[in-house]
């Protein structure tokens, strides 16, 4: 894969390479943070100095289906020793699904000093770069967060309904089988969290993985434009809602559209199919 600067992205501010990370391991203005789906991975080996940001423990509200509040975010950032000026470089498994999810949550609190390490944990590992098992500890900071602002990058079900009725575009990033409603769950798994199958009306099905290369890195801008604009006619000025099942895969697509292609108004519907597929009397499409 070519260097990030040569891929034609709208901005390279939010994406760094594994090589860049390896050259900045001792930069005190940076904090590397691993965010995985597999809870065992961080402890089994991580980038030297990296902290863990766990998607359930650190990002979700402990009781409600929601994200942490201002004090919770402050506690997280103080624990990892980050200030408002610290640039947090996120990476993880699953081609950075959960890293993008964490990155997206950080934006709810205006922590724009954040980047994704292209290719995530697997690329770092496959390149033979060092992994350590010692958990990193930093002196606690005095991080002061603003109140959470959901308005810019997050969208709720009533807004999605308005969005649908206004005929504005949506991107369903789930697999084709989930999109068509063919699969609600795997055989022998009675509950995957939705009572109805299908997709939100007029949503385009663009599985998140189409934006990623085999090694987990992001495809070039030309390749991404061919998918999102060429095949699906999404335009940079469109008001777009992305969704999946709980909002983690769609965080990946949100990142691609917003930062790599420069789309100006993309929001993530984290209620996603586990909410929409259970709602009473909302429209659903199936082929």
């Amino acid at each position: 894969m070519s260097a990030i600067e040569e891929r034609g992205y709208a901005s390279t501010d939010a994406l760094v390479s594994t090589e860049w990370v390896s050259q900045h391991l001792n930069d005190s203005n940076l904090r590397f943070a691993e965010s995985n789906e597999d809870p065992l991975l961080y402890a089994s080996g991580h980038i030297p100095g990296a902290v863990e940001v766990d998607w359930t423990r650190d990002l979700n509200h402990p009781l409600r289906r929601d994200y942490l509040d201002r004090s919770g975010f402050e506690a997280l950032m103080r624990r990892i020793g980050a200030t408002r000026e610290t640039t947090v470089v996120l990476y993880g498994d699953k081609s950075n699904w959960w890293a993008c999810y964490a990155f997206w949550v950080f934006q709810l609190f205006g922590h724009t000093n954040a980047k994704i390490m292209d290719g995530g944990r697997l690329k770092w590992q496959n390149e033979g770069r060092p992994l350590v098992t010692e958990a990193a500890n930093y002196p606690s900071s005095d991080y002061q967060a603003p109140e959470r602002d959901d308005s810019k990058v997050r969208v709720f079900r009533d807004q999605v309904l308005d969005h649908v009725q206004a005929g504005r575009p949506l991107v369903d990033v789930r697999s084709p089988a989930e999109y068509t409603g063919e699969r609600l769950h795997m055989e022998a798994y009675p509950n995957e969290g939705a009572l109805r199958g299908g997709h939100i009306p007029r949503a385009a099905n663009i599985p998140w993985a189409r934006a990623a290369n085999e090694d987990g890195s992001f495809k070039s801008a030309d390749e991404l434009r061919a998918i999102y604009t060429g095949e699906n006619n999404l335009q940079p000025g469109d008001d777009i809602v992305a969704y999946c099942r709980i909002g983690e895969r769609s965080s990946h697509t949100w990142f691609v559209l917003t930062y790599l292609l420069g789309f100006q108004q993309v929001r993530n519907y984290d209620g996603s199919w586990t909410e929409w597929g259970n709602l009473v009397n909302v429209p659903i499409e199936r082929p």
Binding site: E37, R245, I246
Partner: peptide, 22 residues
Amino acid sequence: GELVYRIFGKNLSMGKSMGLMG
């Protein structure tokens, strides 16, 4: 299948739960 939750706890993602229960 709930053996998975006894081992790994209940804060597993759906994808991870499904794979391990599989």
